[in-house]
């Protein structure tokens, strides 16, 4: 078949889309014929390059087969939709297993390379024809690599967005530990948006639970800058305007030093060393007295 094509002058071929399509069709049939060996070659190269280490050899081979068939189908039909859907589906499966963007890109580029090499081998005797075959092959292959990589990155970004949402919702729970006593454990860095959300949640929590004392525990906060410290002071003052007292607990040595060094006025804040101390103080303020059962029983019997 390639012998026949050489009869046509090169200029005519390049300007004739019909022939480009014919070449692509020929290409597809070649790739179908040598499916088994090229697929194996690809899987071998993947393992050799130590890509997709998170997956077993069988898994790689199974995915490689599907990608290969999809790849050939795209070359044949020129429509990337099916591949797009498959790439999204594949990304969804492999992202949780820690597969990186460069691995996915590497794998697709490997397949491109493996196929291109097989073409070189096949057409090595006719440079002109090889050129034309590559002219037909390259744009399609690039488009495929692009589609898969973009699909993977989009899926990743979707997951990141979803997780950000989840973290935001979880980040500032206001919990009631006793009648009129709320705790607000804060874990992780506070950014301005989170600080605002925190104030809103606390004030809403005070209103809804008729809170009188709120213990804000910042043991899990690694560091605080002056803007955030001032936001916290504002939160404490806003809570006071609602008639509630805020006790801040768990200031780490680093945070305490930072606050003193940058000169944030914390005179309006009640601070206690740890959460336990904070809750005990809050209980005293609210008039609770916690007595171990044995002590109480002993006191009653005497």
């Amino acid at each position: 078949m390639p012998r026949e094509a050489t009869v046509v002058p090169p200029a005519l071929v390049q300007n004739n889309p019909e022939t480009a399509t014919a070449l692509l069709r020929e290409l597809v049939s070649i790739l179908r014929e040598s499916r088994t060996e090229l697929r194996e070659e690809w899987a071998r190269r993947i393992t050799e390059s130590r890509l997709l280490m998170a997956m077993t050899r069988e898994e790689i081979f199974a995915e490689a087969t599907t990608v290969y068939d999809n790849y050939v189908a795209v070359l044949e039909t020129g429509s990337v939709e099916a591949l797009q859907a498959y790439a999204r589906d594949l990304s969804e499966r492999i992202i949780p297993r820690g597969v990186e963007t460069q691995e996915v890109l590497g794998v697709v580029l490997l397949l491109r390379d493996v196929l291109a090499r097989s073409l070189f081998k096949k057409y090595q005797l006719d440079f002109n024809l090889l050129n034309r075959v590559l002219d037909a092959y390259e744009p399609a292959a690039n488009r495929i690599a692009n589609t898969v990589a973009v699909g993977f990155v989009q899926e990743r970004e979707r997951i990141i967005r979803q997780q950000q949402e989840a973290i935001r919702e979880l980040s500032t729970p206001v919990l009631r530990v006793r009648e009129r006593l709320l705790i607000l454990p804060i874990i992780g860095l506070i950014d301005p948006q989170r600080a605002r959300q925190l104030t809103e949640q606390l004030l809403r929590g005070i209103r809804e639970n008729r809170g009188k004392v709120a213990v804000m525990d910042i043991t899990g906060v690694p560091s605080i800058d002056s803007a955030i410290a001032n936001r916290l002071v504002q939160t404490v003052e806003a809570a006071r305007l609602l008639g509630a007292t805020v006790i801040v607990t768990g200031l780490s040595p680093e945070i305490a030093q930072t606050l003193v060094t940058i000169g944030v006025d914390l005179s309006k804040m009640n601070t206690v060393g740890d959460l336990q101390g904070g809750i005990e103080l809050a209980e005293r303020v609210l008039g609770y007295k916690v007595i171990p059962v044995e002590v109480e029983v002993a006191a009653r019997t005497h």
């Binding site: 005070i206 008729r210 806003a238 305007l241």
Partner: peptide, 21 residues
């Protein structure tokens, strides 16, 4: 709550005044 938040942002904190829910 919204009023309290706006007040502290404007620096109006009713110092030394008692407040209740």
């Amino acid at each position: 709550p919204d009023v309290a938040q706006a007040m502290v942002q404007l620096g109006l904190t009713l110092e030394d005044v008692l407040t209740a829910l």
